[in-house]
Design a protein around this nucleic acid. Structure first.
Length: 853
RNA sequence: GCCCGCGUGGUGGAAUGGUAGACACAGGAGACUUAAAAUCUCCAGGCCGAAAGGCCGUGCCGGUUCGAGUCCGGCCGCGGGCACCA
């Protein structure tokens, strides 16, 4: 073999690794463990470049840790339940299970040539009954501990498909598939009691030092802690059982500006009125229409209905406030009722103007005019204001201090109490879907909702309908209409009963898979000895798009699993370090059709900015890869053309890992050229005897040690692009070096080692070519010799008044005063001083000299 | 609206407060070759200059410092997250 041949060497070394079984992780108390995990993929059909980047980064970490003596756990699995499988079945008549497992096989076959250091013996898919059976066991344990419960909740309901839709699946208030107007329907659903952990989940964020600050902030906002006053307005002439309206406000300092009471259409008082009065019922029905998405809400008109009832203001019982039912008030935040303060809130101001309600100020700017009728006065945080009511004329701080003062004032006067609330709501996990983990409970006429017995787990999904394949073309949940699947015996009384047909949200599947990887074949959800050894995940890597839901759910699940004895206490924060990597993007080539609509083109259709027919093509840079935009680069094609090492090298080299990287054909070619060059250089060194040259040898080895130092730091801190830049530079030096064969061999072997986490196959080949012992994958990571990192002479820039005016080559250990002398003797300095004394000389050893004149 | 983050050559980007532009892409010049490919050598922020060298330069304005891409304040622009949240 005389040239770099990735196809040959990649197959060869993958086999060598497999035969040596070096990636199989076994508990070993003698070695420090290191658990590196990338967010596992959804088996959509084929892997994409984003996967390659994600898993390559994880692989760099895993291989590096392996060579620094760690016992590395680096598993892979499949997040395999979900709607795309059902949609594919609807579209093509197949079965979600077949579709999913076929995709897994395809993607595994695509992934293996990447040469990832994965322990494939731990692989599982969340749709394996062995996995979801354990998930059902977890569910039952959670149920026993009160961590999961059933309640009524308002959901997006698609009346044609007869299923609940996630918010993301509602487009312009219509079901994304059926196009039917989505209804807000109340259903009995299962919920995880995640909101009980609000405070804890919030506070524990502080300890996650190795998480991106951005992710912590996003979770903090999501949990949404707020401080406010909860109190009641007395209700005049309310229906039976209703003599007050509870309200929560974060702005008790505006209480004197109240001008109406608003309640949710789902508020108990509204419900009561609805039953009694047709006009209320009509309004509530109208108000409930439309989805719960942000988009739908944005567009919905703010509607109010005057009930004719009035409330008494707590500080002035003669002051009467009208009670409105309003469509913008949410039942599941606060108390489902508000007081409107048009003077200090834009939405309330709009509402007041629409319904002719009074607009009252409680405070005004310190020294500016403000027309409260024209616009509400919303002070900035901590702005000083002057009060116009209650304590008229007094100055006060708004913001946190103002709120606390108002709470105190109200409490002292017997009006309500200060409370802390969270935005985080309980996690509704019920889905009216087939392709998910069945919720393991049974509905019995006499016993009610009864948990399935653990020995009856897993409650398996039926594959067919009593011999005939399930028809996914029919709307609704196939489990609901299955002729026999629902029928079972009540686990409590033995009478005939019906199974729950809802399945779990797929986020449940991914909320504990990291724990399952520590003992994937255990007969219980986890094996505590294994979990104790392997947890936590030392480095978790994935996309920022999971910053909230997946990561928050996982944090909740780890806590819940600990409570149930399935994880040790140390694992309640399961991910010690988190890294969120950027996407792989690619240019889009776009033209327009006669109607001005965009038409997309494959890269091969475009030559020098034009199509074959001469049409000019617009190039849109850095776009997310998507099939419809025709800008997808298939990893398998790249691997076939250049080899896996080139793909790996490229996705790491061009951008910092947390940022997006643009895939370019020229960049990929350049990466490949470089790897071929490295191979060629190494092979020449092996074949070309050369005498030692003390000076050149020394210079090369010094640079080698500096490279070791910098690459190690780069790999340690996710500075892969910088590490790679250093490796390029070192390769250039090696190519030019006049050193002897021995020194060059040492340098090239070290280069192979330093490249091995990124380009493992090439590294093995060079390593063996140059007589390295064993596999480079398991060879000890090189250590820089501190003595070799310090140069004997350094080039010191000379600044005059902070501007570079020259440089001096001086011994590195030279005395500060000697350096000063040398600097003062420098031409430029002499010239600048012109005989005068310098005002100041700053010497930063080894870095710079600055002469102030 | 609220909360984050980011602005450096033609491009991706590098730079513990200490020589701005490492490394690479694209580009240019040359060597080798009948030619091409491959490979190798060199040039390359802007302006002035034959050169030596000088001046300017990290979105804009100011500040701190011997010294600012980096720290602080204000502005402009871009991107992301959240939001009828009371």
């Amino acid at each position: 073999m005389s040239r770099y041949s990735p196809a040959e060497i990649e197959a060869k070394w993958q086999q060598a690794w497999q035969e040596a079984n070096i990636f199989c992780a076994r508990r070993d108390e003698a070695r420090p463990k290191y658990y590196v995990l990338e967010m596992f993929p959804y088996p959509s059909g084929r892997i994409h470049m984003g996967h390659v980047r994600n898993y390559t980064m994880g692989d760099v970490v895993a291989r590096y840790k392996l060579s620094t003596g760690h016992n590395v756990l680096h598993p892979m699995g499949w997040d395999a339940f979900g709607m795309p499988a059902e949609n594919a079945a609807m579209a093509s008549g197949g079965h979600p299970k077949d579709w999913t497992y076929a995709n897994i096989a395809t993607m595994r076959d695509q992934m293996r040539p990447l040469g990832l250091s994965i322990d494939w013996s731990r692989e599982f898919a969340t749709c394996d009954p062995e996995y979801y059976g354990q998930q059902q066991a977890l569910f039952l344990d959670f149920l026993e501990k009160g961590l999961v419960y059933r309640k009524n909740a308002v959901v997006n309901w698609d009346p044609v498909d007869m299923t609940v839709l996630a918010n993301e699946q509602v487009i312009d208030g219509k079901g994304w598939r059926s196009g039917a107007e989505v209804e807000r329907r109340e259903l009995t659903q299962w919920f995880f009691r995640i909101s009980d952990f609000s405070e804890e989940l919030l506070e524990a964020l502080d300890g996650l030092d190795d998480w991106p600050a951005k992710v912590r902030t996003m979770q903090e906002n999501w949990i949404g802690k707020s401080r406010g006053l909860q109190f009641a307005f007395g209700l005049n002439d309310g229906p039976d059982g209703h003599d007050r309206v509870e309200v929560y406000t974060t702005r008790p300092d505006t209480l004197m500006g109240a001008s109406f009471i608003g309640i949710s259409p789902d508020h108990p008082l509204a419900r009561q009125l609805e039953r009694e009065r047709a006009d209320v019922a009509a309004f509530c029905a109208e108000a409930r229409k439309g989805g719960t998405t942000a988009e739908a809400i944005e567009k919905a008109e703010k509607l109010g209905f005057d009930t004719g009832l009035t409330c008494r203001h707590p500080f002035d019982t003669a002051w009467e406030l009208p009670v409105y039912i309003a469509n913008f008030i949410l039942m599941d935040y606060g108390t489902g009722a508000i007081f409107g303060c048009p003077g200090h809130d834009q939405r309330d101001h709009d509402f007041a103007r629409k319904y002719g309600l009074p607009i009252i100020d409680t405070f005004l700017p310190m020294d500016a005019e403000h027309d409260i009728e024209a616009a509400p006065y919303v002070p900035l945080k901590s702005e000083r204001v002057r009060y116009t009511r209650i304590v008229a004329g007094e100055e006060a701080q708004t913001g946190e201090a103002g709120v606390e003062a108002a709470i105190e004032f109200c409490e002292t006067n017997g009006v309500g109490q200060g409370v802390t609330k969270f935005r985080l709501r309980d996690w509704g996990l019920s889905r009216q879907r087939y392709w998910g983990c069945p919720i393991p409970v049974v509905h019995c006429e006499t016993c009610g909702v009864v948990p399935e017995k653990k020995e009856n787990l897993p409650v398996q999904l039926p594959y067919d309908e009593g011999g005939t394949p399930i028809d996914f073309g029919v709307p609704g949940n196939p489990l609901d209409r299955h002729p026999t699947w629902r029928d079972c015996a009540c686990p409590a009384c033995g009478a005939p009963a019906l199974r729950e047909t809802d399945t779990m949200d797929t986020f449940v599947d991914s909320s504990w898979y990291y724990a399952r990887f520590t003992a994937p074949r255990a007969e219980t959800p986890t094996d505590m000895a294994e979990a104790e050894y392997w947890m936590n995940v030392d480095q978790y890597i994935g996309g920022i798009e999971h910053a909230i839901l997946h990561l928050l759910y996982s944090r909740f699940f780890a806590r819940a699993m600990h409570i149930c004895g399935h994880l040790p206490e140390k694992a309640i924060e399961p991910f010690d370090a988190l890294f969120t990597q950027g996407m792989v993007t690619h240019e889009i080539y776009q033209t327009r059709d006669v109607k001005g609509r965009p038409v997309y083109h494959l890269p091969e259709e475009v030559t020098e900015g034009r199509l074959a027919d001469g049409t000019e093509v617009e190039v849109i840079p850095s776009a997310k890869m998507s099939k419809s935009k025709k800008n997808v680069v298939d990893p398998s094609t790249i691997i076939a053309e250049y080899g896996a090492d080139t793909a790996r090298w490229f996705v790491l080299s061009d951008s910092p890992p947390e940022r997006d990287v643009e895939w370019t054909a020229s960049g990929a070619e350049a990466a490949h050229r470089h790897l071929a060059r490295v191979w060629r250089i190494a092979s020449e060194i092996a074949q070309t005897p050369g005498e030692a040259d003390p000076q050149a040898d020394e210079a090369l080895l010094r640079e080698m040690h500096k490279t070791i130092d910098e690459v190690t730091k780069g790999v340690d801190s996710f500075g892969f692009n910088a590490a790679i830049a250093r490796l390029y530079a070192f390769t250039n030096s090696l190519a030019k070096s006049q050193a002897g064969q021995a020194a060059k061999t040492t340098a090239a072997r070290t280069l192979a080692q330093l490249m091995s986490p990124m380009t493992p196959h090439l590294a093995e080949d060079i390593w063996s070519l140059l007589g390295g012992a064993g596999l480079v994958a398991t060879a000890a990571w090189p250590k820089p010799d501190p003595a070799m990192l310090i140069d004997e002479t350094v080039i010191l820039p000379i600044q005059i008044n902070g501007k570079r005016r020259g440089e001096l080559s001086l011994p590195a250990d030279m005395d500060k005063s000697e350096v000063e002398k040398a600097a003062l003797a420098h031409n430029a300095v002499v010239k600048a001083l012109d005989g005068a004394q310098p005002k100041k000389i700053i010497v930063v050893p080894g870095r710079i000299v600055n002469v102030v004149v």
